[in-house]
Design a protein around this nucleic acid. Structure first.
Lengths: 356, 356
DNA sequence: TGTGTGACGGAATACGATTTCCGTGCAGGT
DNA sequence: ACCTGCACGGAAATCGTATTCCGTCACACA
């Protein structure tokens, strides 16, 4: 090894100061330095405490968290897995999760599964090695993937070893889960729209294998049924679960003719916003020529024109709650997160004139 | 201690399997197990490799990353500090940073500084203890805070110990920095708007102590000057650097009278979007009655109505570049990230009729 | 058959902390 | 003056893993 201990070469690369260095600089033992720095139950003479602190500051000492983790047998990190941070839905959740973690004095390590169940599994595997205090997973579970069993195994092993798990919106896994009332929210939205006088609907949705998409669509159809309405299969359009998917859905709808459609419901806001842009580009004014509704109430839903009718989820609070559930001592089971219909200008009070 | 080793209680809480357990189960020493699992230069008989792997799988073994970090003397994590994930600007950067880190096989730990320099400093201090391979900081440096010197100390200590640092958009700190051409972009935007025939401008900006805000405003004024124009001090409005700040700025502007204003330039897109909403609520159609321009080109800039004129920053690529710079062996100094003016419908081709 | 050599397993040590255990010195009580 | 107990410092064990070093065994070669 070169450069390990051939005198202090001014500002050259040095290995970080260890507790040992601090102790030597302060003229005390190892153990005393440790006790002085993290105030154990043992008392250390005030003078020594001061000298240790001074030495630590002077050497720029920062305790090696990994070493602490080993010695203490527990870490001070929490892990978060999201599908995509660059999506307002997940970034709001991530903000909440991080907030709660930091409030509990934990560092959060975040991983992005890029909407891939395989990657998600791989991430959880690797995360487990970190021995985080808790793992929170926010993602769109894909039904019927063969990674499901493996993911359960992995998380079970983690929990058996004392870890805590909280899931967001994946109610078919056997762990504490924060469930968004997707079905109920969509159902109430449908009822509210029917109440407004709308009669003909289109649904722009993702694959049914994505639980969230499936539940919202099913809830919406349920609500319509309750109001004595249905959706013409021609107007039920499956596209990717993203903004561009929403745009594609709108284009498909235009191709099939939308004269009769009162409101197009997209199963999330970003899809709805993508659809609105396409409608507008095609010469249809959203909110006047065609109604549009979404789900989530992301931040930009109010800044879009017309403001988007949607179903509000308290995303940030949801994230906080998830971390708190994960950190709590007792199992929480399934926690229902209520949703709230928010009617805005994208669905006019009455359907366009000249309709039944 | 209870439950440490009183026999295997079925599914009860167990400590995680260690390498030692695996070795015992496989009937080899743990040196051999270690070699079998992470394929060292030493060869291990194929039969033993197989048995170790089988035992590991059966026990659900996952190596203790902290222990590895200590033994190897280096970790496999990278750290990211952002001001606020729940802001499209930062979340796009975070997505890029994470992408690049994962490509390099690193786990990323993310912390949120909540736009507070104090918190940022505290975070860096704590992060240093993690011994990450690199630290990337994306934030709006506040000029003249007394935490500056301490932050430099902390990062210098980190670098001296072999860590790598990359900063995004904080060109006055002595570390590798990815610099957005805020001044140039804003200047070219001003020129482009002048070219379109606009003459009277308002600027909605944040505090000058926020470098980004300052530079964009200064660049914009420079561009106007170059075109022989100025901004009436009455139309230069300082507000918080957020969406609601932008909205407040628009309200202030309305209060001062905006009949003469051709274009209101807000120093970032979220502020611009907040302002547009306020203008519209006041009965002024953005893009027709008053032009609006922003900066960043966040995703929703195209979905807003009218689509927002702005200055595009390749945010995701910026994040990737930052992590790559941090991970590279040689110092990069200052890397300029080019910006590009994007004219959209929020600034009409010609100012409203009836004007000079 | 003796010997050099390569393959491979295991004991021991290192990594940077925390924590237990032991020993010392000093104060106070009788 | 002696014993007890407390305050405190330091040596050593410990955590889980990587790695160096040493020893053994088998095989090939002369």
């Amino acid at each position: 090894m070169i450069g390990v201990n051939e005198g202090p070469p001014a500002n050259a690369r040095r290995r970080p100061a260890t507790l040992h260095d601090v102790a030597r600089a302060a003229g005390v033992s190892y153990a005393t330095a440790s006790r002085a720095l993290n105030g154990s139950d043992r008392t250390v003479r005030a003078e020594n405490v001061a000298r240790v602190h001074a030495a630590a500051a002077q050497l720029g000492y920062s305790p090696h968290l990994s070493a602490q983790a080993i010695a203490r047998g527990s870490t001070s990190t929490a892990a978060l897995v999201v599908s995509d941070v660059d999506d307002p839905y997940f970034s709001s959740i991530a903000a909440g999760v991080t907030e709660a973690a930091e409030a509990a004095g934990l560092i959060v390590t975040m991983a992005i599964a890029d909407r891939s169940p395989d990657l998600e599994l791989q991430i959880v595997r690797s995360l487990r090695g970190q021995r985080p205090r808790a793992i929170v997973i926010a993602g769109s579970r894909i039904a019927g993937t063969e990674t499901r069993a493996e993911l359960i195994d992995e998380l079970t092993a983690y929990r058996t070893a004392g870890g805590r798990v909280a899931l967001i919106s994946q109610h078919d896994l056997p762990f504490d889960t924060l469930c968004i009332d997707n079905h109920g929210g969509a159902r109430r939205l449908a009822l509210a729209l029917a109440e407004q006088g709308h009669r003909t609907f289109a649904v722009i949705h993702g694959s049914d294998s994505i639980r969230t998409s499936h539940d919202r669509r099913a809830g919406f159809l349920d609500g319509l049924r309750q109001a004595g309405l249905t959706v013409d299969p021609r107007y039920s359009i499956e596209v990717p679960f993203t903004r561009d998917g929403g745009a594609a859905g709108a284009r498909a709808l235009l191709a099939r003719g939308v004269e009769e459609v009162d409101v197009a419901f997209a199963v999330n806001d970003t899809m709805a916003i993508g659809a609105m842009t396409v409608f507008r580009d095609a010469g249809l004014t959203p909110g006047a020529d065609i109604g549009v509704a979404g789900f989530d109430d992301i931040g930009s839903a109010v800044d879009v024109v017309p403001a988007l009718t949607t179903v509000r989820i308290p995303l940030r609070e949801l994230g906080q709650a998830a971390m708190r559930v994960a950190l709590a001592d007792d199992a929480a089971g399934i926690v229902q997160i209520p949703t709230e219909v928010v009617l805005r200008d994208s669905t006019p009070l009455r359907p366009r004139p000249g309709r039944s």
